[in-house]
Simulated assay, not measured.
Amino acid sequence: MSIPLSAVREASAEQLEAAFNGPPEEAARWIAAAARAGMLEAQILYGQILLEGRGVAEDRHAALGWFQAAARAGSLKGLTMVGRCHELGWGTPVDRARATALYREAAEKGYDWAQYNLASLMAQEGDRAGALAWFRRAAAQEHAKAMTVLGRFLEEGWETPRGPAAARALYARAAALGDFRAQFNLGTLATAAGDIPAALRWFEAAAAQGSPGFLGKMAMMLLARPEAELRALGLRIEKSVKRVSF
């Protein structure tokens, strides 16, 4: 069924998001029409659809093209996604220097995801001091992943004095926003403090949202614990990961 152009042009961000999360083929048609009508958020969502092959054939080169279109129109999210394509080789050869430059451009204009991605690249390349500064800026905007990593910096004393209480507070803020790594870190802290009921609550929260790779490592850690309750949870997680794998 064709989509009236007037309906596409009047779509709200909420309607676009709802369409994106709907039936894949219908979402692809609707969001493609909105992207072609010049809606920046639709261009980014359609790029994501093409990256994942959701309701259409996977086409990473075409996805990059839509991210570039949004970036040219001034979207910092689009600019950051172009950087992501260069970092990971989506539709273009891997070019970490180009990715860094694009992240920095968007980061300096205040986009939190660009700040987080730039910090992550800097950390991977050994520039922890530079990474710390950008993680702080992203965390100041309540970016959950940045808060979790900043918490690790403070917990471990990387490029900054150790601050266990500040680290815990950051984990708690990020966990409340649904970051499973922060939830896992709170579980680890509770385990170290001997508060196994609290540890179980946090580990179960992390298990409900974690990626398969993360959950596999989490299960191994829990299975090695002496506490029967933690080992039992580790076994449940291990079984769930195996079910997903098969």
Results as ranks from 00 to 15, higher is better:
Ser2Tyr: 00
Ala7Met: 06
Leu16Phe: 08
Leu16Glu: 00
Phe20Leu: 10
Glu25Met: 05
Trp30Glu: 02
Ile44Val: 09
Gly47Ser: 01
Gly47Val: 01
Gly53Met: 00
Asp59Phe: 00
Arg60Ile: 06
Gly65Cys: 01
Gln68Ala: 15
Ser75Tyr: 13
Thr80Gly: 11
Met81Cys: 14
His86Leu: 13
Pro93Leu: 12
Pro93Gly: 06
Pro93Arg: 11
Arg96Glu: 10
Ala97Pro: 00
Thr100His: 14
Leu102Pro: 07
Leu102Tyr: 01
Tyr103Thr: 05
Ala107Glu: 03
Glu108Asn: 07
Gly110Ile: 02
Gln115Pro: 02
Gln115Asp: 07
Ser120Pro: 00
Met122Gly: 05
Met122Cys: 07
Arg128Leu: 15
Ala133Pro: 01
Arg137Gln: 14
Ala138Phe: 03
Ala140Met: 10
Gly151Glu: 06
Glu155Gln: 15
Thr160His: 02
Gly163Ile: 06
Gly163Lys: 13
Ala167Asp: 04
Tyr171Leu: 08
Ala172Gln: 12
Asp179Ile: 09
Thr188Asn: 09
Ala198Ile: 03
Ala205Lys: 12
Gln209Leu: 13
Gly213His: 10
Lys217Ile: 11
Met220Gln: 15
Ala224Trp: 02
Glu227Ser: 05
Ala232Pro: 03
Ala232Tyr: 08
Leu235Pro: 00
Ser240Cys: 07
Val241Asp: 04
Ser245Ala: 15
